[in-house]
Design a protein around this nucleic acid. Structure first.
Lengths: 209, 209
DNA sequence: CGTGGCCTTGAGTGACCTCAAGGTATGTGG
DNA sequence: CCACATACCTTGAGGTCACTCAAGGCCACG
């Protein structure tokens, strides 16, 4: 089929640390992530780094570009990434446009959750919330196995997403492991007690992740 | 004109602490803020509060509702608010729909800035960034006078927006006043040295606020 | 086998928090 | 015009969570 051929022509690959987009640039396309993880982040002049979004398999990078094809932040592959390029200008009324709008809503709501986390939660609550969110997303993508899933982030990445230092992430993860709510080891996440982890995350009124 | 009459029929008022929308509810309309300030926030079970957005005169509350008429967070008036109700379902292709899309992009980008602020900046940097952002927005709304503008937030509100405590906001504002970069007093903001304030905010690659 | 990335651990520090009291401003009712 | 209440701001003393700096261990990879 023609559309199949076109799709495979638009298949692209990225290596870890390779940019999907640099900061203050127009992205070339929307990327449908088929495999691998990427993140959007910003660097401060003195080297401090904040990750502002994570892209997992099944995610669209980035829904906002459908409204304004410009990125203030850089987007970088964290692992090997396989993706499909999609045109920036989708008809707003089309089925595809509507689907993109829904993804945009999701990603904005996730950003709000992160704001609450960074502004008002303790280190353990932030980690519980983040890992819970990522686990749920992996599950929805069909990539969780029971209470486990892959989690190919370094502790430094986790620190930059949660606004902590890598050292403190390390110690806090150990404490959570000692409590028996969570085990993150060599890029693999295990959640023995999901409801205990939910309690730890101090979710508030946030119904879904 | 008919449209004028319809517009004034849809004029609404809110008092301080009055809800424009409660959490996990469908808002009744989009609100075009004519006068006054409001905020979107979330409460954690133990009372911690994080403000996730501020709405100023000229702002639309909230652009995201045009894509999904549902609010996870509550929106509350901080002062007396005068606003115009606008229908939730705008045609995506219409001029008004396009304008709303642009406002949505702006508000999402501001959220990213806040993420960086909450995740990686010191108390003084966060305050510098927030007050700078609010000043620029007031200026764009035509509500700044030279280097001054109204700023009807309590120190507690500022604390809940920046992820600090009210006590620490108080002390940090005093320190900034002592440095001569900023003077916030009885709901009035004065910025003697704008470029010094910009430096303090550690903006990074963020070109606009 | 060396090298670089990542994880782990320890010791010391500091930015920000908590608790508590007092001060100031504004509005309300008598 | 005064008494009172309420909300907000200010200051002090003490505590703690998370940070910084530094060193060592464990890989995977060339």
């Amino acid at each position: 089929m023609l559309s199949q051929i076109a799709a495979s022509d638009d298949l692209v690959f990225f290596r870890p640390h390779q940019f999907l987009v640099r900061d203050n640039e127009r992205p070339e396309a929307l990327y449908d992530i088929l495999e691998g993880w990427a993140c959007r982040h910003r660097l401060l002049p003195d080297g401090r780094r904040q990750i502002t979004a994570l892209y997992l398999p099944g995610d669209l990078c980035d829904p906002l570009w459908s409204l304004s094809p410009y990125s203030h932040d850089a987007v970088v592959a964290l692992t090997n990434v396989r993706a499909v390029r999609r045109p920036l200008n989708e008809a707003a009324g089309s089925d595809r446009g509507k689907a993109t709008a829904l993804r945009l809503v999701e990603s904005v709501e996730r950003q709000s959750n992160w704001l609450v986390s960074l502004g008002r939660k303790t280190a353990m609550e932030r980690l519980a919330q983040l890992l819970l969110e990522l686990f749920e997303r992996m599950r929805r993508a069909g990539l969780a196995y029971g209470q486990q899933c892959a989690l190919p982030l370094t502790q430094t990445d986790i620190a930059d997403a949660t606004g902590l230092t890598a050292v403190h992430v390390n110690r806090t993860l150990q404490a959570m492991r000692a409590k028996g709510v969570l085990d993150l080891h060599s890029k693999w996440l295990r959640i023995p007690d999901l409801s205990a982890l939910r309690d730890l995350a101090a979710l508030g009124h946030q119904d879904s992740l």
